[in-house]
């Protein structure tokens, strides 16, 4: 009954580690793109363009790794992930558009930051995954 080399467990573990590495390098290249122009190469245009391109390419690598990870999951886990992503997308769309309006209608004085939206989407995604885990436990 065992197939050690390509079992669900082995495959998922491998895909998760790969996704984790791509995510780590994407965050690293984001940090380099955000801070290196100011603190390391004094806004050298060529180096900044290279950093941006590398960041985008690594980002696409992360997207592909995420796709592989999702495809490697079993059907119940894919359902949990789909529901969590739907929640995250919906919350992001609704709260993101309202949040953007807040400054226009003078309810907040600061400019809305994309990072705030990303945090909200991450939290709602995690809530969705936990909710799915509890639902099918």
């Amino acid at each position: 009954m065992t197939n050690q080399d390509n079992s669900w467990k082995t495959r998922t573990k491998k895909n998760t580690v790969r996704l984790g590495l791509w995510t780590f390098f994407w965050v690293l290249t984001c940090a380099i793109t955000a801070f290196a122009p100011k603190f390391i190469w004094d806004f050298n245009t060529t180096l900044t363009i290279i950093a941006v391109v590398v960041n985008i390419l690594v980002g696409f690598g992360m997207i592909l790794a995420n796709r592989t990870h999702l495809r490697g999951l079993d059907e119940m886990q894919q359902k949990i992930q789909t529901e969590a992503m739907a929640l995250s997308l919906g919350v992001g769309l609704v709260l993101g558009s309202s949040y953007e309006l807040l400054e226009d209608i003078k309810l907040i004085t600061y400019e809305p930051e994309i990072s705030h939206l990303i945090i909200v989407m991450c939290i709602s995604y995690m809530i969705g995954v936990i909710k799915g885990g509890v639902k099918y436990r």
Partner: peptide, 29 residues
Amino acid sequence: DWTQAQLAEALDVSRQTINAIEKGKFDPS
């Protein structure tokens, strides 16, 4: 005399999925 983990491995799914199917919480494809 199989465990959930053994059945999960034979079907190439997670043990949690076997548990959810057995409890009727998840319908398999």
